[in-house]
Write a protein that binds this DNA or RNA. Structure first.
Lengths: 277, 277
DNA sequence: TTCAGGATGGAATAACTAGTTCATTGTGCG
DNA sequence: CGCACAATGAACTAGTTATTCCATCCTGAA
């Protein structure tokens, strides 16, 4: 008997197949299934005996597991786990190491790699630390606001313009506080406790941004801060803050994570409002 | 005899050791050494017999190779090649999948994951397609410009403000063409063929951006375009363009790759000028 | 309770593994 | 040339491997 044509050849399909069959599988086999998804590297490199011991079953159970999924033996199943490691694109460190040691890559290209690396690291870290409740709470607050004030200067200013673009496209009423005419205080005075604000500022904090955040808070506006430290002066006036640690390269911090958080807030608010209305 | 304390435990060190010993190694062993660095995955997964066949030597030569390097057997050597695959950080798709299927994840969190994923994909694709010469040429052009004009609207506008911030910090003379007073045409008329411009525009292309690019080109200004297609109308007036394909999520395209290219240009120009002066 | 059929444990096995050994070949030095 | 010794090839071995097989156990339906 050869394995059918429907047997997964790549890890992702196999993973889905296992998750789909999870309930129907016998106890010991389910135990192996869980172990295999939790420790795919062990399956790739281990022997039937070692994996059996590590997952607390008999070696024969591994063969049965493979048969249940449609493979003709443990070896065929293991191949899929090995291919996964083979096909994985190499990590950035390794890629950069390779480029560095092989001498290739002009200085300019290395600069680009540095910024791409910093951006990706920032995005990963942000996603990892982003709290679900934290996000839900901020979205709820912003969703019930009449007008959302956007405050950001200097390095954070691109985030403000990005938010303005997104809010405009999503038909969310906003007000970008950046008037070059120096009328910011007057504009802010129109804000009420029915409004909310997104204030973005990183060290060294722009004094105008801090002043605006304080003024808005005193008017009863819900201030959501995006900043780089829990010790940020913004934390005092904000009803809630997101701490985003951006990686830097060549003296410039990335903005990737902050931009991602910003667009997430915008889209999430739009979806929340659509759900309500 | 146990292997000495000086035997490499990680792939990079092992690689260096092999390269250092390359000349001194006997012919067949050198043959294996070359194969192992060219096909590290095969060493990680194969058996002594299969690797020997693939590299055209006897199995025993593999054991001798390991001994030459100081390992107490082929198995110890193979472990290093396996660790290399293990320690490689998992791919981003896979990581996001893991987060997704681990059950939880509110709707808002999924939005965040979507944007982070789109950003990372964009960054990866951009780095992959970014040509070295292309980059070097653009940097050379910008480096010799007296003033760098920055033109971008709507979705691309955050890139313009980011560039303005970076140029300011790097003491590079620039001019952000975004006057809300409607004086853009007059400002552009000051440009000469000693200047350069960075124009950023994506479909649907803002008419003002296209007009400015054409005007600048007619004045002899070196126009570097950042756009999303080779068919972009910007390609006509630009002396050079970068094609950046940003992934999208929930109807919003990422800006991560464009931002990374922009900051790369800024820093590379600063470095190029420092090198000259 | 009884019984059937799948699930499981564990021993048995045949194939294959890494590593060893030894005869042969190649190579550099006097 | 001839010698010493490293390098190589190939058969061999002891151990481990994936897999099979069978007795036992569990589970649920009648």
């Amino acid at each position: 008997m050869s394995e059918g044509l429907t047997v997964p050849r790549d890890y992702e399909s196999l993973r889905e197949l296992i998750l789909r069959q999870r309930q129907k599988l016998p106890k010991r086999i389910a135990q192996v299934a869980a172990y295999s998804l939790d420790n795919p590297d062990e399956i790739a490199f281990g022997t039937a005996a070692s994996i059996a011991a590590a997952s607390g079953v008999q070696p024969s159970t591994l063969i049965r597991f493979a048969h249940h999924l449609g493979y003709d033996g443990f070896t065929s199943l293991q191949t899929v786990f090995r291919e996964r490691l083979r096909e994985r694109t190499s990590s950035y460190d390794e890629r950069l190491n390779a480029l560095r040691s092989s001498g290739a890559g002009s200085r300019n290209r290395r600069i680009a790699e540095g910024f791409v690396g910093a951006s990706i690291r920032s995005l990963e870290t942000m996603l990892h630390k982003l709290g679900e409740e934290e996000l839900d709470r901020a979205v709820a607050r912003l969703a019930k606001a009449e007008t959302i004030y956007i405050v950001a200067r200097r390095r954070a200013y691109p985030v403000a313009t990005y938010l303005a673009y997104a809010f405009g496209k999503l038909r969310i009423r906003y007000l970008l506080v950046d008037s070059s005419a120096g009328l910011d205080p007057e504009i802010l005075n129109f804000a009420t406790d029915k409004d909310a604000a997104i204030v973005v500022s990183f060290s060294p904090y722009a004094p105008a941004t801090l002043a605006h955040a304080t003024a808005l808070a005193e008017l009863g506006v819900d201030v959501i801060a995006i900043t780089d430290s829990a010790f940020s002066p913004l934390a005092q006036s904000a009803s809630q803050w997101f701490e985003i640690a951006e990686a830097d390269h060549a003296g410039f911090r990335s903005l990737a994570a902050t931009m991602a958080v910003a667009i997430t807030l915008a889209v999430a608010v739009a979806e929340a409002r659509r759900g309500d209305g």
